[in-house]
């Protein structure tokens, strides 16, 4: 039913959206869709891995770092930074304990 004050064109758009939308939602909320997304994700990862492997060999031939090397360095840096943060937290905690004991 058309809500009071809603113009005809808007009412038609809203109704059409619900007709199409409910079907689209039915499809994208189905098990088939999620299985498909899973398979597509696997395929994408396989493809990305293959391309990265090839490009890495090419860049390494020219003695240049590849994207995967940069990623690994970033991960190592993040690990180090996390360790520094943990250590400074441990130091703070020890300092607090010492101050409380005094």
């Amino acid at each position: 039913m058309m809500a009071a004050g809603t113009p005809l064109w808007l009412d038609l758009v809203l109704r059409a959206e619900r007709v199409v939308g409910s079907r689209v939602e039915g499809a994208v909320h189905s098990d088939t869709y999620f299985d498909l997304v899973t398979e597509m994700n696997r395929a994408k990862r396989f493809l990305t891995g293959t391309v990265e492997g090839i490009s890495k060999r090419i860049w390494h031939t020219a003695n240049l770092p590849a994207g995967t090397d940069v990623r690994r360095v970033r991960e190592q840096l993040a690990r180090m930074e996390r360790r520094i943060v943990e250590l400074s937290k441990e130091l703070d905690a020890q300092r607090e304990t010492l101050e409380t004991e005094r």
Binding site: T6, P7, L10, V13, L14, E17, R18, V20, G21, V24, E25, V28
Partner: peptide
């Protein structure tokens, strides 16, 4: 977004009004 992919249409139509 995929919870309700077409609602943007209804939202933008309501915005226009």
């Amino acid at each position: 977004f995929m919870m309700a992919p077409t609602t943007a249409v209804a939202q933008n139509a309501t915005l226009l009004q």
